[in-house]
Simulated scan of single mutants.
Amino acid sequence: MSVLSRMPAARPDEAVSNHRPNRPDERRRELAIFLRSRRERIQPEEVGFAPGGRRRTPGLRREEVAQLAGVGITWYTWLEQGRDINVSAQVVEAIARTLRLDRLERNHLFTLTGVPIGPVSGDCADLPPSVQRMLDNVSPYPALVLNARYDVLAFNDAYCKVMLDLSQIPVEDRNLLWLSFVSNRWQCSFTDQESIKMHMVAGFRAASADHLGEPSWHDLIQQLLTHSTEFAELWNRYDVAAPSNKVKLVDHPRAGLMRIEPVNLWLTRSGQGRATVYTPVDDETEAKFRLLVGQ
């Protein structure tokens, strides 16, 4: 039995558990660690403070963040300690600017503080047959549908022949994080594996803020932490990111090097589900796609 087979199989219509006794505590704990990690990466001289003097921790001190953000040191200390305090959108915005957060990091901060940044809905709903038809019709381009947890909800035959034969993998193990960090079943590999994995974990971290306390998310994270020291190292960096459209090099065992560019098509307004189509960057890659798919 596979490790993930002990977990409930992820479904497109997976319901969110209403029993979340520890969700507020988890969110505040996650917020405390995230704030500290962002504070420690900023050097004092970058924001106008003198670099001299002995510092027990790297980066800015709490009182320096509070000063720059225009909030009380006690209040900010409580926030970073994960205490249950009231937070306004204006204060969160000030902290985000002080810590020099990018757009994804800023949204992550708003989510962790519980301050709304816009309507948020659940995971991708039941996939209509038209989605599978769309995937099939873009062949020979590999394509699949993922939810925010990187569970594979649908895929086409081209993906099986060019990237990975998902039809041979149990449904409960069809998760790109699990397949990337634990499984060795990929039939092709990205030449820049380290960067891609780093970005994938950062995307997973960003999405996880909306799902703190949900059993399926918690179980997957714990399984990955247990079975992959590489995932654990990246997870503990607390980086956040959005899905990337960066051109990637794939080294296929039969076709050799291929240059591909992923195109993400969002299926929900909240960005919880997306179809990804891997398009060829050049004619040579296009020809290899058609050869592998048999067109």
Rank of each mutant, 00 (worst) to 15 (best):
M1I: 09
V3Q: 15
V3S: 15
R6C: 13
D13F: 08
A15S: 12
A15E: 13
S17L: 08
S17K: 08
H19N: 12
N22F: 15
P24L: 02
E30I: 00
I33L: 14
F34K: 01
R38Y: 00
R38A: 02
R39C: 01
E40K: 01
R41P: 07
I42V: 09
E46W: 11
P51Y: 00
R56L: 04
T57G: 05
T57Y: 08
P58Q: 01
L60W: 05
R61V: 00
A66T: 05
Q67K: 05
G72Y: 08
G72S: 11
G72C: 04
G72Q: 00
I73G: 08
W75M: 01
W75L: 03
Y76T: 02
Y76H: 09
G82P: 07
R83Q: 12
S88T: 12
A89V: 01
A89Y: 01
A94T: 01
I95A: 07
A96R: 09
L99T: 05
R100V: 05
L101R: 03
L101T: 05
R103A: 15
L104N: 13
L104R: 15
H108F: 07
L109A: 09
L109N: 08
F110T: 06
T111F: 09
T113P: 11
P116N: 00
G118N: 03
V120G: 06
S121Y: 14
S130A: 12
R133A: 15
L135E: 03
N137W: 13
V138A: 07
L144C: 08
V145W: 08
L146F: 06
L146N: 06
L153C: 04
C160V: 03
I169S: 13
P170M: 00
P170I: 02
D173L: 11
D173W: 13
N175L: 03
N175G: 02
L176K: 00
L179W: 10
S180F: 05
F181V: 12
V182M: 11
V182E: 12
R185P: 14
F190W: 10
T191N: 06
T191A: 14
Q193N: 07
S195G: 13
K197M: 15
M198I: 03
V201H: 00
D210R: 14
P215R: 05
I221G: 04
I221P: 10
Q222K: 12
L225K: 14
H227F: 13
E230P: 08
E230L: 13
F231Q: 09
F231M: 09
N236Y: 03
D239S: 05
D239C: 09
A241M: 06
S244W: 02
N245D: 15
V247E: 15
L249M: 12
R254N: 11
R254D: 14
G256L: 01
L257D: 13
R259Q: 12
L265D: 10
L267G: 03
G271E: 07
G273I: 02
T276C: 12
V277R: 04
T279S: 09
E284W: 00
F289C: 00
R290K: 08
G294K: 04
